[in-house]
Amino acid sequence: MSSWSAAAPAISAAFLASSVEVVEAFTIVLAAATLRGWRPAALGTAAGLALLAGGIVVLGPLLDRVPIDLLQLVIGILLLLFGMTWLRKASLRAAGVIPLHDEDAAFAREVAQLEAAARRRRTRLDWVAGMMAFKGVVLEGLEVAFIVIAVGAGRGLLVPASLGALAACALVLLVGAVVHRPLSRVPENTLKFGVGVMLSAFGVFWTGEGLGVAWPGQDLALLPFAGLFLGAGFLGSLIARRPSMEIVQ
């Protein structure tokens, strides 16, 4: 059985990252449901979840056939690319260089797209709403699936990481069902900053292990790595916020 120190980072990274993605998927599904009712939205959501589950069931067992060093290296590199992209954007958002993600604006955009589609083809609006929900669930769900595999597969922690992601889904759906509007009060950029830090730390850890590096303290090395990426993210944000940068812009 995995120790808590090994499982906790995977669970928390999967939970936080999945929260962000599920909030975005919920906004799209809610937009479809608001305009066309819950039936097409629920059907699209169910179809998206079925496609994702099918992909995981088919492709998941193949992971066991990949040598662990190669798996750690490939996943580590992908995590570095994914995590550092998130962290870079979160730093730029924190510095005010690019605007914060606005869930209310995203909701309005999705509704406008659906209304435009309604004007074009009136007879198939339920279909359009269902496809919109399907696409949103698949696109955001792909990221959740990658994160769960990435933080869990390297050490046999797929089940704890999946539980973290499922807990995030349950929490977002519960809150969404209660408030019944886009979850715009979720501190999305703070979450993305934190998730970017954690995924980047996992990325360095797995890439190093894939190359044969035995990190001092093993899994505990993730903590100083996360601290360093947090510091780098803040430092980047501070540099980006400097007056000289504003003048250049």
Binding site: L92, S200, L235, A240
Partner: peptide, 18 residues
């Protein structure tokens, strides 16, 4: 590897802001 990634991140944010 660790230091390289940290430097790359800071430089990327700085360049994007610039």
């Amino acid at each position: 590897l660790l230091v390289g990634c940290l430097v790359v991140l800071i430089e990327s944010v700085r360049r994007s802001a610039q």
